[in-house]
Protein backbone atom coordinates (compact mmCIF):
# COMPACT_ATOMS: atom_id res chain seq x y z
CA UNK A 1 0.00 0.00 0.00
CA UNK A 2 2.62 2.46 1.08
CA UNK A 3 4.76 1.99 -1.96
CA UNK A 4 1.82 2.76 -4.21
CA UNK A 5 1.15 6.03 -2.41
CA UNK A 6 4.79 7.03 -2.64
CA UNK A 7 4.94 6.27 -6.31
CA UNK A 8 1.74 8.22 -6.89
CA UNK A 9 3.17 11.23 -5.05
CA UNK A 10 6.38 11.02 -6.99
CA UNK A 11 4.41 10.73 -10.23
CA UNK A 12 2.58 13.95 -9.41
CA UNK A 13 5.83 15.68 -8.51
CA UNK A 14 7.46 14.55 -11.72
CA UNK A 15 4.44 15.61 -13.72
CA UNK A 16 4.61 19.05 -12.12
CA UNK A 17 8.28 19.25 -12.99
CA UNK A 18 7.69 18.40 -16.64
CA UNK A 19 4.77 20.81 -16.77
CA UNK A 20 7.02 23.56 -15.39
CA UNK A 21 9.71 22.72 -17.93
CA UNK A 22 7.13 22.83 -20.69
CA UNK A 23 5.88 26.24 -19.59
CA UNK A 24 9.44 27.52 -19.40
CA UNK A 25 10.11 26.16 -22.87
CA UNK A 26 7.01 27.95 -24.09
CA UNK A 27 8.19 31.18 -22.50
CA UNK A 28 11.56 30.71 -24.19
CA UNK A 29 9.92 30.09 -27.57
CA UNK A 30 7.73 33.14 -27.24
CA UNK A 31 10.38 35.28 -25.59
CA UNK A 32 10.58 37.62 -28.56
CA UNK A 33 6.84 38.30 -28.35
CA UNK A 34 6.55 38.41 -24.57
CA UNK A 35 9.50 40.71 -24.02
CA UNK A 36 8.86 44.44 -24.13
CA UNK A 37 12.21 45.16 -25.65
CA UNK A 38 14.74 43.34 -27.78
CA UNK A 39 17.76 41.96 -25.98
CA UNK A 40 20.17 44.62 -24.80
CA UNK A 41 17.94 47.60 -25.66
CA UNK A 42 18.59 50.33 -23.09
CA UNK A 43 16.13 53.08 -22.26
CA UNK A 44 17.94 56.30 -21.55
CA UNK A 45 16.91 58.07 -18.36
CA UNK A 46 15.25 55.08 -16.80
CA UNK A 47 18.34 53.61 -15.09
CA UNK A 48 17.70 51.52 -11.98
CA UNK A 49 14.01 52.28 -11.73
CA UNK A 50 12.18 49.93 -9.36
CA UNK A 51 9.45 47.55 -10.56
CA UNK A 52 6.50 49.46 -11.93
CA UNK A 53 3.69 49.09 -14.41
CA UNK A 54 5.92 49.90 -17.35
CA UNK A 55 8.78 47.75 -16.15
CA UNK A 56 7.34 44.91 -14.03
CA UNK A 57 10.81 43.75 -12.99
CA UNK A 58 12.36 47.24 -12.98
CA UNK A 59 15.34 48.36 -15.02
CA UNK A 60 19.03 47.77 -14.57
CA UNK A 61 22.03 50.05 -14.27
CA UNK A 62 22.08 51.10 -17.91
CA UNK A 63 18.33 51.19 -18.23
CA UNK A 64 17.52 47.83 -19.72
CA UNK A 65 14.12 46.33 -18.89
CA UNK A 66 14.88 43.46 -16.47
CA UNK A 67 11.75 41.55 -17.47
CA UNK A 68 12.75 41.41 -21.11
CA UNK A 69 16.35 40.74 -20.24
CA UNK A 70 15.35 37.87 -17.93
CA UNK A 71 13.32 36.28 -20.69
CA UNK A 72 16.18 36.60 -23.17
CA UNK A 73 18.62 35.35 -20.55
CA UNK A 74 16.39 32.39 -19.78
CA UNK A 75 16.29 31.56 -23.46
CA UNK A 76 20.08 31.73 -23.71
CA UNK A 77 20.65 29.63 -20.59
CA UNK A 78 17.94 27.14 -21.52
CA UNK A 79 19.24 26.53 -25.02
CA UNK A 80 22.81 26.12 -23.81
CA UNK A 81 21.75 23.81 -20.98
CA UNK A 82 19.69 21.60 -23.27
CA UNK A 83 22.60 21.28 -25.69
CA UNK A 84 25.05 20.54 -22.87
CA UNK A 85 22.68 18.00 -21.34
CA UNK A 86 22.34 16.24 -24.69
CA UNK A 87 26.12 16.03 -24.97
CA UNK A 88 26.41 14.78 -21.40
CA UNK A 89 23.82 12.06 -21.95
CA UNK A 90 25.20 10.86 -25.24
CA UNK A 91 28.75 10.80 -23.90
CA UNK A 92 27.80 9.31 -20.55
CA UNK A 93 25.43 6.76 -22.03
CA UNK A 94 27.87 5.72 -24.73
CA UNK A 95 30.61 5.42 -22.18
CA UNK A 96 28.48 3.40 -19.78
CA UNK A 97 27.24 1.03 -22.45
CA UNK A 98 30.72 0.53 -23.86
CA UNK A 99 32.59 0.28 -20.58
CA UNK A 100 30.27 -2.43 -19.31
CA UNK A 101 31.09 -4.55 -22.34
CA UNK A 102 34.81 -3.95 -22.73
CA UNK A 103 37.29 -6.61 -21.69
CA UNK A 104 38.21 -6.18 -18.06
CA UNK A 105 41.66 -4.53 -18.21
CA UNK A 106 40.53 -2.02 -20.81
CA UNK A 107 37.36 -1.27 -18.90
CA UNK A 108 39.42 -0.65 -15.78
CA UNK A 109 41.60 1.80 -17.66
CA UNK A 110 38.64 3.71 -19.08
CA UNK A 111 36.92 3.70 -15.74
CA UNK A 112 40.09 4.95 -14.06
CA UNK A 113 40.37 7.87 -16.46
CA UNK A 114 36.74 8.71 -15.92
CA UNK A 115 37.26 8.36 -12.17
CA UNK A 116 40.05 10.94 -12.20
CA UNK A 117 37.85 13.36 -14.10
CA UNK A 118 35.04 12.72 -11.64
CA UNK A 119 37.36 13.63 -8.74
CA UNK A 120 37.38 17.25 -9.89
CA UNK A 121 34.17 19.20 -9.31
CA UNK A 122 32.30 19.54 -12.62
CA UNK A 123 32.44 23.31 -12.29
CA UNK A 124 36.25 23.38 -12.19
CA UNK A 125 36.43 20.95 -15.07
CA UNK A 126 34.11 23.07 -17.15
CA UNK A 127 36.08 26.23 -16.35
CA UNK A 128 39.32 24.52 -17.28
CA UNK A 129 37.96 23.23 -20.58
CA UNK A 130 36.52 26.61 -21.47
CA UNK A 131 39.85 28.21 -20.60
CA UNK A 132 41.70 25.71 -22.76
CA UNK A 133 39.44 25.78 -25.81
CA UNK A 134 37.78 29.18 -25.64
CA UNK A 135 34.33 30.51 -24.79
CA UNK A 136 32.71 28.99 -27.86
CA UNK A 137 33.43 25.62 -26.33
CA UNK A 138 31.31 26.38 -23.27
CA UNK A 139 28.42 24.07 -24.13
CA UNK A 140 30.63 21.11 -24.95
CA UNK A 141 32.69 21.82 -21.84
CA UNK A 142 29.64 21.81 -19.61
CA UNK A 143 28.45 18.61 -21.23
CA UNK A 144 31.80 16.93 -20.77
CA UNK A 145 32.07 18.12 -17.20
CA UNK A 146 28.65 16.88 -16.15
CA UNK A 147 28.84 13.56 -17.98
CA UNK A 148 30.68 11.70 -15.21
CA UNK A 149 28.16 13.02 -12.71
CA UNK A 150 25.93 10.01 -12.72
CA UNK A 151 24.47 9.56 -16.15
CA UNK A 152 27.25 7.09 -16.60
CA UNK A 153 26.05 5.26 -13.58
CA UNK A 154 22.40 5.13 -14.49
CA UNK A 155 23.25 3.42 -17.74
CA UNK A 156 25.82 1.33 -15.98
CA UNK A 157 23.06 -0.16 -13.89
CA UNK A 158 22.28 -2.11 -17.02
CA UNK A 159 24.87 -4.58 -15.95
CA UNK A 160 25.80 -7.30 -18.35
CA UNK A 161 27.11 -9.28 -15.42
CA UNK A 162 23.73 -9.45 -13.70
CA UNK A 163 22.21 -12.78 -12.85
CA UNK A 164 19.60 -12.80 -15.58
CA UNK A 165 22.18 -11.85 -18.19
CA UNK A 166 24.27 -14.78 -17.03
CA UNK A 167 21.36 -17.14 -17.49
CA UNK A 168 20.59 -15.70 -20.88
CA UNK A 169 24.19 -16.28 -21.82
CA UNK A 170 23.91 -19.84 -20.56
CA UNK A 171 21.06 -20.50 -22.95
CA UNK A 172 22.93 -19.04 -25.89
CA UNK A 173 21.14 -15.69 -26.12
CA UNK A 174 23.62 -13.48 -27.97
CA UNK A 175 24.96 -10.23 -26.53
CA UNK A 176 23.20 -8.13 -29.15
CA UNK A 177 19.84 -9.26 -27.85
CA UNK A 178 20.86 -8.33 -24.32
CA UNK A 179 21.91 -4.90 -25.55
CA UNK A 180 18.54 -4.59 -27.23
CA UNK A 181 16.86 -5.44 -23.95
CA UNK A 182 18.77 -2.67 -22.23
CA UNK A 183 17.87 -0.18 -24.89
CA UNK A 184 14.17 -1.03 -24.96
CA UNK A 185 13.58 -1.40 -21.25
CA UNK A 186 16.04 0.84 -19.50
CA UNK A 187 16.15 3.63 -21.95
CA UNK A 188 12.44 3.72 -21.87
CA UNK A 189 12.28 3.77 -18.07
CA UNK A 190 15.18 5.95 -17.02
CA UNK A 191 15.45 8.19 -20.01
CA UNK A 192 13.10 10.88 -18.76
CA UNK A 193 14.72 11.21 -15.41
CA UNK A 194 18.21 11.08 -16.88
CA UNK A 195 17.36 13.93 -19.24
CA UNK A 196 15.93 16.02 -16.46
CA UNK A 197 18.85 15.35 -14.14
CA UNK A 198 21.36 16.19 -16.84
CA UNK A 199 19.45 19.36 -17.57
CA UNK A 200 19.55 20.45 -13.93
CA UNK A 201 23.26 19.73 -13.60
CA UNK A 202 24.15 21.37 -16.90
CA UNK A 203 22.14 24.47 -16.03
CA UNK A 204 23.98 24.88 -12.74
CA UNK A 205 27.40 24.39 -14.32
CA UNK A 206 26.72 26.64 -17.32
CA UNK A 207 25.25 29.50 -15.36
CA UNK A 208 27.91 29.34 -12.65
CA UNK A 209 30.67 29.28 -15.24
CA UNK A 210 29.23 32.27 -17.01
CA UNK A 211 28.75 34.01 -13.66
CA UNK A 212 32.49 33.56 -13.11
CA UNK A 213 33.13 34.99 -16.56
CA UNK A 214 33.61 31.77 -18.49
CA UNK A 215 31.05 31.48 -21.17
CA UNK A 216 29.91 32.47 -24.58
CA UNK A 217 29.38 36.21 -24.96
CA UNK A 218 25.59 35.81 -25.12
CA UNK A 219 23.95 37.40 -22.13
CA UNK A 220 22.52 34.52 -20.13
CA UNK A 221 21.17 34.48 -16.59
CA UNK A 222 24.57 33.84 -14.99
CA UNK A 223 26.10 36.78 -16.76
CA UNK A 224 23.14 38.99 -15.86
CA UNK A 225 23.50 38.17 -12.19
CA UNK A 226 27.24 38.76 -12.36
CA UNK A 227 26.65 42.14 -13.98
CA UNK A 228 24.15 43.16 -11.32
CA UNK A 229 26.69 42.51 -8.56
CA UNK A 230 27.53 46.20 -8.58
CA UNK A 231 23.99 47.37 -8.21
CA UNK A 232 22.00 44.76 -6.36
CA UNK A 233 22.64 46.02 -2.83
CA UNK A 234 20.70 49.15 -3.62
CA UNK A 235 18.53 47.80 -6.42
CA UNK A 236 17.63 44.23 -5.46
CA UNK A 237 15.45 43.65 -8.50
CA UNK A 238 18.39 43.63 -10.87
CA UNK A 239 19.61 40.31 -9.43
CA UNK A 240 16.53 38.83 -7.81
CA UNK A 241 14.45 38.22 -10.92
CA UNK A 242 17.12 36.57 -13.05
CA UNK A 243 18.07 34.48 -10.01
CA UNK A 244 14.47 33.43 -9.51
CA UNK A 245 14.17 32.44 -13.15
CA UNK A 246 17.33 30.39 -12.85
CA UNK A 247 16.13 28.66 -9.68
CA UNK A 248 12.78 27.94 -11.31
CA UNK A 249 14.47 26.29 -14.26
CA UNK A 250 16.70 24.11 -12.07
CA UNK A 251 13.85 23.29 -9.71
CA UNK A 252 11.56 22.16 -12.51
CA UNK A 253 14.29 20.00 -13.96
CA UNK A 254 15.00 18.44 -10.59
CA UNK A 255 11.36 17.75 -9.90
CA UNK A 256 10.99 16.20 -13.34
CA UNK A 257 13.92 13.95 -12.53
CA UNK A 258 11.95 12.59 -9.60
CA UNK A 259 12.87 13.06 -5.98
CA UNK A 260 16.41 12.30 -4.96
CA UNK A 261 17.72 8.80 -4.63
CA UNK A 262 16.98 8.80 -0.94
CA UNK A 263 13.37 9.66 -1.56
CA UNK A 264 12.70 7.25 -4.32
CA UNK A 265 12.96 4.24 -2.00
Amino acid sequence: MRTREVSLASLIVRGLGWLGLGLLALAVLLSDFLAHAPAGAAIAGAELSPPSQAHPFGTDIIGRDVFSETLHGLAATGVKAVAAAAIAIVLGGLFGAVAARLPRPLALLVRGFWGVLAAVPPLLLAILLIGLFGGGFAIVAAGLATAPLGFVRSFDAVDVRSRHAEYAHATGIPGMILLKRDLTYDFHNVFGSVVARALAAATIVISTASFLGFGAPTRDLGLMIAASKISFFSAWWTAAFPALALILLILCARLAAGLDEGERA
Binding site: S162, R163, E166, Y167, T171, G172, R181, Y185
Partner: peptide, 22 residues
Protein backbone atom coordinates in the same frame (compact mmCIF):
# COMPACT_ATOMS: atom_id res chain seq x y z
CA UNK B 1 29.49 -22.87 -27.75
CA UNK B 2 26.73 -20.30 -27.74
CA UNK B 3 25.08 -22.07 -30.69
CA UNK B 4 25.20 -25.32 -28.77
CA UNK B 5 23.80 -23.70 -25.64
CA UNK B 6 20.67 -22.66 -27.50
CA UNK B 7 19.48 -26.18 -27.06
CA UNK B 8 19.79 -25.99 -23.27
CA UNK B 9 17.08 -24.55 -21.04
CA UNK B 10 17.07 -23.78 -17.35
CA UNK B 11 14.40 -23.98 -14.71
CA UNK B 12 15.80 -22.85 -11.40
CA UNK B 13 14.69 -21.96 -7.92
CA UNK B 14 16.27 -18.55 -8.27
CA UNK B 15 13.92 -15.95 -9.57
CA UNK B 16 16.55 -13.45 -10.60
CA UNK B 17 17.32 -15.58 -13.62
CA UNK B 18 14.51 -13.80 -15.47
CA UNK B 19 15.02 -10.20 -16.47
CA UNK B 20 12.68 -8.32 -14.13
CA UNK B 21 12.14 -5.54 -16.66
CA UNK B 22 10.72 -7.75 -19.40
Amino acid sequence: ASRIRRRIAFVTGEDDCLDPRM
